[in-house]
């Protein structure tokens, strides 16, 4: 792990005690790495500290212990090399689609002239299929279109790593699906290193090369790192036919429903080392599991886990 492109090392976050209360350590000893070109998803229950981890990675929040190493250097604050796609798009409402993206491009390339900025923006507007909406204001766009602008704005600065906090959670299933497909094609085409928080197991299986499982807080840890055993090039339409799909899915579901909570007992296992959380490869080296939930509606893992 010490050779990873981005390393999260012994990260801890303690929020100071509110008046009359005690300080809470949301997570502690969080270790994992992100390789160059890798897509990593972080899954965990609500409140376990996922957003906090991402904000620390982005440099927007400070850790109480441990640190984040990018390219061998510890980060000290936000950087143009780490672009964030915010959950609620965070577009500047007084700027047009073009204006929002240009704001980012001009920050990255202060020396560029108007025409160059414009051409660069257009490239990314076309990439997220927003051609024709350049001059619209965010309030004139649908939720999906707004999130597309957010994606274009983040990609346009050509960051080292793309950080996403549940970017599609506010969208309807259909829009979410098509945006996931677009994100897959963009990220595979550009070998974009990405880190994404999600609540959606299928989204994680579709997008991630590696899924980091975080236990429930307080003092949450990384329980396990799951390698995606489905082949690259999988699509939303065909991935459920692959024999590894159900083992993956069941493994993640099992984690969210049962293990995230009872992880405290696994912690006491002398084999568990937070610096090197166990790595699992569901479906590999075990008989292909029978699809358990065939025909049934997809269970919402998060509701089931509560």
């Amino acid at each position: 792990m010490s050779t990873s492109h981005i390393r999260i090392e012994g990260l801890r976050k303690t929020f100071p005690a509110p008046r009359g209360g005690t300080a809470v350590t949301v997570f502690d000893q969080v270790w994992f790495g992100i390789e160059k070109g890798e897509f990593v998803c972080l899954i965990g229950h609500s409140g376990c500290g996922k957003t906090t981890v991402l904000n620390i990675l982005a440099g927007l929040d400070e850790s109480s212990g441990g640190g984040v190493i990018v390219n061998g250097k510890e980060i000290t604050g936000p950087s143009l090399d780490r672009a964030v796609i915010f959950q609620h798009h965070a577009l500047l409402p007084w700027l047009s689609v073009l204006g929002n993206i240009a704001f980012a491009v001009r920050s990255r390339h202060p020396g560029w002239d108007k025409a160059k900025v414009r051409a660069h923006c257009q490239k990314y507007i076309d990439l997220v299929h927003l051609s024709g909406a350049e001059l619209k204001k965010p309030s004139q766009l649908s939720g999906g279109m707004k999130q597309r602008v957010g994606i274009a704005r983040a990609l346009a600065i050509e960051p080292d790593i793309l950080l996403m906090d549940e970017p599609f959670s506010a969208l309807d299933a259909l829009t979410r699906g098509s945006l996931q497909d677009e994100l897959v094609s963009i990220c595979t085409a550009t070998q974009q290193t990405s880190f994404m928080i999600t609540h959606d197991i299928d989204e994680a299986i579709l997008l991630a090369d590696k899924i980091v499982l975080m236990s429930n807080g307080p003092e949450a840890r990384v329980c396990e790192i799951v390698e995606n055993t489905l082949p690259k090039g999988r699509t939303r339409k065909d991935m459920h036919r692959h024999p590894h799909y159900y083992p993956m899915r069941n493994h993640l579901l099992e984690f969210l429903v049962n293990r995230a909570n009872s992880f405290k007992t696994e912690l006491s296992d002398p084999g568990y080392d937070p610096m090197h959380p166990p790595v699992t490869r569901p479906g590999v080296g075990q008989p292909a599991a029978r699809p358990v939930t065939t025909g049934e509606p997809l269970l919402d893992a998060m509701t089931a886990g509560r």
Binding site: L60, F86, A90
Partner: peptide, 25 residues
């Protein structure tokens, strides 16, 4: 805060943040 965070992640300087984010907002 979201809009300020956008400016922060883009490493926008204080003066430019004041004029192009805070002032219009």
């Amino acid at each position: 805060k979201e809009w300020l965070n956008v400016a922060r992640t883009l490493e926008v300087g204080q003066m430019r943040t004041a004029l192009s984010v805070i002032l219009p907002a």
